[in-house]
């Protein structure tokens, strides 16, 4: 899986660029129910990743994921840094170097558990977990179906709109958080969608 440097480099660059391109949208979502910094923070993290792109691409996939996670932890500045950082570092830690699709499912599961522990949260509280948990279920059903995964993540982000926030700054709003998409759910869906589409385009997904 992503065994050559150029495909890793392209994937990292594409995902980081997608986050940067959507920074304003993420910030607008966060202004509605949070503190309005999600896009700015994620963009800062993505820029830190791009600044280190060559050395991150040099690493194996598991080591690269850990490296990206650490960059996000150190540079993002909001709660999303440790949350996304924990996800990627746990994913890298759990993924064997020569892993296949089944290893990805187990690693994704481990990473999801780590984010739940870090955020002291669980699915159903209008957070990124409401995208990551359905994404795991989709991977379990078929780990080689990027189009289905991308669609499931997008639908899961939409499904946070009618939910009431129970974690993070949005929870201060109580019922007023209903009617807005959760920014963390949106950024998670965006990243999953970009990864899936990139892998699909390069044919990587079929071989994993």
């Amino acid at each position: 899986m992503l065994s050559d440097r150029e495909s890793r480099r392209a994937l990292i660059a594409t995902v980081a660029q997608a986050v940067i391109d959507h920074a304003d949208e993420l910030t607008a979502l966060d202004q509605a129910i949070g503190d309005g910094d999600h896009g700015i923070n994620m963009k800062r993290g993505a820029e830190a990743v791009l600044a280190d792109l060559d050395s991150l691409a040099d690493k194996t996939l598991p080591e690269g994921l850990k490296g990206i996670g650490m960059a996000l932890v150190m540079k993002v500045g909001g709660a999303s840094g440790p949350l996304y950082g924990t996800f990627l570092m746990s994913l890298g830690k759990a993924l064997p170097e020569e892993g296949g699709a089944e290893d990805l499912v187990a690693a994704f599961d481990a990473a999801l558990q780590a984010v739940m522990a870090r955020g002291k949260s669980h699915p159903g509280q209008k957070t990124m977990l409401d995208v990551l948990a359905p994404a795991l279920e989709c991977l379990k059903a078929d780990p080689r179906a990027p189009a289905a995964l991308s669609a499931a993540a997008g639908a899961a982000a939409e499904a946070t709109i009618p939910m009431q926030a129970e974690r993070g700054r949005a929870s201060f709003l109580g019922e007023r958080s209903i009617g807005h998409m959760d920014p963390g759910a949106r950024s998670s869906a965006l990243i999953i969608d970009t990864v899936c589409k990139t892998l699909e385009a390069t044919g990587e997904a079929a071989g994993t």
Partner: peptide, 12 residues
């Protein structure tokens, strides 16, 4: 403050 000097916190 965050790493850019705005509101936020930084692990570093």
């Amino acid at each position: 403050g965050d790493p850019d000097g705005g509101l936020g916190t930084s692990v570093e």
